[in-house]
Design a protein around this nucleic acid. Structure first.
Length: 331
DNA sequence: TAAGCGTGGCC
DNA sequence: TGGCCAAGCTT
């Protein structure tokens, strides 16, 4: 790698970040390691705009790992809302418990300790180390991989799955100086998120347009066809619809109601409990939400067998529990 | 290693 | 309209 190219890329991309980065709450000086960790969990496969309101609510409700750890995991799953991949909420809750038990309630600063927590893999461990503790780990996410693929390799897209070569390249192009390296991690990610996007990149706004190997090569097409995610009729769709019901009801739902909801004679939708004590957050949820979730579940073209399989999967994953009264989130 | 795992906005 | 895509992790 040409060192003068690298030096220019460092200066320009970090300069661009300083001038035009989005003002995100987990990037502010008052952001805590816990707040940054929560944001990293939520941002796994989920866009910033959808994370923002949920992150604020979590920080208001659970400003420390100990406060989250003290609640049932079902509360975390419920508060996860519609961010998707609710297992992340379960793992974040479990991670908070481990932080309390093994790290005295403080998010650990070492990449190795972070990696030992549930739901934290290579990317998230490096990201928390760099963003929260200013340890210049090599951060490699999908945005960074795409920027590297275009700017340095000359490809339209990164490889289908993370390769050793991509990791090596990411390490090679990191600035040597600590502060500059940490900024670089955030800056390249930001560039990929807002300028060097997957579809229709905004090259006119790019601070390294004239350095870009992909542009120099005439923007060749991707060297492979990305395989799309199917959705209609999948287990994921059914699981999501079941979770959608469980999130908005306050009482356990009989197993057979969940399994048979699409039949010719669907059972009545479960009604929300009366608020009574006034302390339940569930009581704030409207009957409309319950009705919508139930309608969605009922509308799916899934047979009894698939519903049963999906429900059992959710129970096996710990996203739901079953008692004599029926199925509910963990409480 | 590849498949499985939610959700909603965008073009 | 519908496939594509988003700060991945786990098995």
């Amino acid at each position: 790698m040409d060192t003068s190219i690298l030096t220019q890329a460092h200066e320009r991309i970090n300069g661009w970040f300083a001038a035009s980065a989005r003002d995100l709450p987990w990037r502010r000086p008052d952001a805590t390691p816990w707040g940054i960790m929560v944001s990293e969990f939520m941002l796994q496969q989920t866009p910033v705009v959808r994370v923002l309101p949920v992150w604020h609510e979590w920080m208001r409700r659970w400003p420390t790992p100990a406060l989250l750890a003290a609640e049932p995991s079902g509360e975390a799953v419920r508060a996860w809302g519609r961010l998707g991949y609710p297992r992340r909420a379960l793992r974040l809750h479990a991670a908070a418990q481990k932080i309390v038990e093994e790290y005295d309630g403080a998010v650990p600063g070492s990449p190795e300790a972070l990696l030992s927590l549930p739901g934290i893999g290579g990317y998230t461990a490096a990201a928390i180390s760099s963003f929260a503790f200013r340890i210049p780990e090599v951060v490699v996410d999908t945005n960074i991989r795409r920027v590297h693929a275009r700017l340095f390799t000359g490809n339209a897209l990164p490889e289908p799955s993370l390769t050793a070569a991509e990791n090596a390249l990411a390490a090679e192009v990191m600035p040597a100086e600590v502060t500059e390296a940490n900024t670089w991690n955030a800056a390249v990610m930001e560039l990929g998120a807002v300028v060097c996007t997957a579809r229709s990149p905004k090259c006119a706004d790019c601070p390294v347009l004239d350095l870009c190997a992909w542009v120099a090569a005439g923007k060749p097409e991707p060297h492979y066809v990305p395989k799309g995610q199917s959705w209609h009729g999948t287990d994921r769709q059914v699981r999501g619809a079941i979770m959608g019901v469980l999130r908005v009801v306050s009482a356990p739902v009989p197993r057979m109601d969940l399994v048979m909801s699409a039949d010719a004679t669907p059972p009545a939708p479960p009604a929300p409990q009366d608020s009574g004590s006034g302390t339940s957050t569930v009581s704030d949820l409207s009957a409309q939400q319950v009705n919508d979730a139930w309608t969605l579940l009922s509308s799916l073209t899934a047979d009894k067998e698939q519903r049963e399989k999906c429900l059992n999967g959710l129970l096996a994953d710990g996203l739901a529990v079953e008692t004599a009264a029926g199925v509910s989130l963990q409480s």
